[in-house]
């Protein structure tokens, strides 16, 4: 008995090692989205505050470039505004020609500006933290786009002052998209390799496309308006299993330099979800 006790004590580090491995393994494997969200709600506020400091410093360093991008965006918007003014004048101030592919019809979409306080692109499952939370009106499942207007991701969880976004650079993220020119739609899923590219799958074999075609949101989910740009087709692979096509998409959002974003709220989302839920039942 004494010997056994001695053996256990002298080899305690093995037991301790196995216990710690089990704890870490349990945390790693068992943290499904729900548990992850619960844990992160607590750690998010602390981590968010910490990241705010470094985020502020980084945003100062990028002010010049961000200003240039914003000025460019203003220029484009000004140009669009002029076009619409011109159209109104041409039509004797009565109607505006409505282009369904643009996001002109923004009556039930509300936008919130937010800044990134944490961003990861090097891992397989990447996440982004924004400096806006419940207190600013942010809720789960809101869409996020870059300052240039391209899709970034989806708000996954919210704490009082911060929100966590699951970006396109996460294999758990799925976005319903369509080819702008032909309206064929599929799902955009990241394969975990390159932060500049993603894949558009589940496209029928007779899909019509050409290299350089723009991919936009389909508008099938209540998260994004229809026609928000996502990326450009750069390559095509016909999948061996089944007859579906897989397209490689160059993402329009540069996640490595992302600092300012817009969070989109669909004011009609609740109504739409309730209706769809009622039909499903």
């Amino acid at each position: 008995m004494k010997n056994l006790l001695h053996i256990i004590i002298s080899n305690f580090h093995w037991i301790f090692f196995l216990v710690l491995i089990c704890i870490a393994g349990w945390l790693l494997i068992n943290n499904d989205e729900l548990q992850r969200s619960r844990y992160l709600d607590i750690s998010q506020d602390v981590a968010g505050k910490m990241h705010t400091v470094s985020g502020t410093i980084r945003s100062y360093l990028h002010l010049k470039r961000d200003n240039a991008a914003l000025t460019e965006r203003i220029a484009i918007l000004e140009q669009e505004l002029l076009q619409y003014k011109y159209q109104i004048r041409e039509n004797n101030f009565t109607t505006i020609k409505y282009d369904s592919s643009s996001v002109l019809n923004t009556s039930h979409w509300r936008f919130f500006a937010a800044r990134l306080v944490h961003n990861s692109i090097s891992g397989t499952e990447n996440y982004i933290t924004l400096d806006k939370g419940i207190a600013d009106g942010i809720r789960e499942d809101m869409g996020v786009v870059s300052a240039e207007g391209a899709v970034v991701g989806l708000v996954m969880s919210v704490s009082s002052n911060f929100s966590r976004v699951i970006p396109l650079l996460n294999p758990n993220s799925r976005l319903s998209c369509k080819i702008k020119s032909s309206n064929f739609f599929g799902s955009l899923i990241w394969d975990g390799h390159d932060s500049r590219y993603s894949n558009l799958g589940e496209l029928p074999s007779h899909t019509v496309y050409k290299m350089g075609d723009t991919i936009v949101t389909s508008g099938f989910s209540a998260t994004f308006p229809e026609g928000v740009p996502v990326g450009i087709i750069t390559n095509a692979v016909r999948q061996k299993a089944g007859n579906s096509n897989l397209l490689q998409i160059k993402l329009l959002t540069d996640f490595s330099t992302l600092h300012e974003v817009l969070i989109i709220e669909n004011l009609q989302k609740k109504e739409r979800n309730e209706l769809e839920k009622g039909v499903d039942q």
Binding site: L20, I23, A24, W26, L27, L28, S120
Partner: peptide, 13 residues
């Protein structure tokens, strides 16, 4: 590292 980097369990392991 996991807590602040949102990679629960990975770096600990």
């Amino acid at each position: 590292i996991d807590t602040f980097g949102y990679t629960l369990g990975l770096n600990m392991l």
